[in-house]
Amino acid sequence: SQVHIGNTTFTFDNPEKAQKYAEKYAKKKGLTVQKNGDVWTVE
């Protein structure tokens, strides 16, 4: 599972961890999370 934030990609061994990280980061920065398969993009 991966989380894309700008030009940075974070890889997680667990989809739940990836989703939590993406949502927490997005909330903190006032951004949105797009999910595509097991990839979350914060923008």
Rank of each mutant, 00 (worst) to 15 (best):
I5T: 02
V33Q: 01
K27E: 11
N7W: 12
V42H: 00
Q19T: 03
V33M: 09
Y21R: 00
K27Y: 07
V33S: 02
T32L: 08
H4R: 15
N14T: 15
S1V: 14
Q34K: 13
K20I: 12
K35G: 03
K17I: 13
N36V: 14
K27P: 03
T41Y: 14
N7E: 09
T41M: 09
A26W: 03
T32K: 11
E43H: 12
D13E: 10
F10H: 11
T9Y: 15
E43T: 14
V33L: 08
T9L: 15
G37M: 02
A22L: 10
I5F: 06
T11K: 09
K17V: 12
Y21Q: 02
N36T: 11
T8S: 11
K20V: 08
E16H: 08
H4P: 02
S1L: 13
E23V: 04
I5H: 03
G6Q: 07
V39P: 00
W40C: 02
A22F: 06
K27L: 08
Y21E: 03
V3M: 02
F10G: 04
A26M: 05
E23C: 11
P15I: 06
A22D: 01
F12Q: 03
S1N: 12
K35T: 04
Y25F: 09
L31H: 06
S1M: 11
T41P: 00
T11I: 14
I5S: 02
G37S: 01
K27R: 10
K20Q: 13
K24F: 13
A26Y: 03
N36K: 11
A22C: 06
A26I: 03
I5Y: 03
A22Y: 04
L31Y: 12
W40G: 01
E23S: 04
E43V: 14
K17L: 14
V3C: 04
A22E: 02
W40R: 03
Y25G: 01
N14M: 06
Y25P: 01
K29M: 14
K29R: 13
T11Y: 15
E23R: 04
T8A: 11
Y21N: 00
V39M: 10
W40E: 02
N36R: 11
Q2A: 08
D13N: 09
E16W: 09
Q34L: 11
Q2L: 12
K24E: 15
P15E: 11
T41F: 14
E43D: 12
P15H: 06
V33Y: 05
A22P: 00
T9K: 12
Q34I: 14
T11H: 14
A18G: 01
N7M: 10
K17A: 15
A18E: 00
A22R: 01
T32D: 05
K27N: 09
T41S: 07
K20F: 09
Q34R: 14
K35L: 12
Q34W: 10
D38L: 09
W40F: 10
G37D: 07
I5G: 00
A18S: 00
Y21M: 08
Q2D: 05
N7I: 06
K29Y: 15
E16F: 08
Q19K: 11
D13F: 06
V39W: 06
V33A: 10
E43S: 13
W40V: 01
T9S: 08
G30D: 03
K29H: 15
N14C: 10
V33C: 00
F12E: 04
V42W: 04
T32W: 03
V33N: 00
T8N: 12
K24R: 13
S1F: 15
K20C: 13
Y25Q: 05
F12A: 02
I5L: 05
K24Q: 14
G30K: 04
Y25L: 13
N7F: 10
V42L: 07
E43A: 12
F12R: 00
A18N: 02
K17E: 15
H4G: 01
T11W: 15
T8F: 15
S1E: 03
A26C: 06
P15T: 06
K28T: 10
K17C: 15
K24T: 12
T32Q: 09
N14A: 09
N14D: 14
T11L: 13
E23H: 05
P15M: 07
Q19G: 03
K24L: 11
A26Q: 03
I5P: 02
V33G: 00
L31S: 02
V39R: 05
G6S: 07
W40P: 01
Y21H: 04
A18K: 00
F12V: 02
K24G: 11
W40K: 01
F10K: 09
K28V: 12
L31F: 13
F12S: 03
Y21F: 15
K24H: 13
K24M: 14
D13T: 08
Y25S: 03
S1A: 13
K29T: 12
K35Q: 08
T11Q: 12
A22W: 05
L31G: 05
T9N: 08
T41I: 14
K27H: 09
F10A: 05
Q19E: 11
L31I: 07
H4M: 13
K17W: 10
F10Y: 13
T9D: 06
V3A: 02
G37A: 04
N7S: 11
P15Y: 08
Y21D: 03
V3T: 01
L31K: 03
Y21V: 08
T41G: 01
T9W: 15
V33E: 02
P15C: 12
Q19N: 04
K20T: 09
F10D: 02
K27I: 05
V42P: 00
N7Q: 07
T9C: 15
E23P: 00
D13I: 05
Q2I: 14
G30T: 02
Q19L: 08
Y21K: 00
Q2V: 14
E16I: 11
A18D: 00
E23M: 07
V39K: 07
N36F: 13
L31V: 07
V3G: 01
Q19D: 02
G6I: 05
Q34V: 14
I5W: 04
I5D: 01
Q19W: 08
I5V: 09
A18L: 00
V42S: 02
G6D: 06
V33I: 10
K29Q: 09
D13K: 08
D38V: 05
V33H: 00
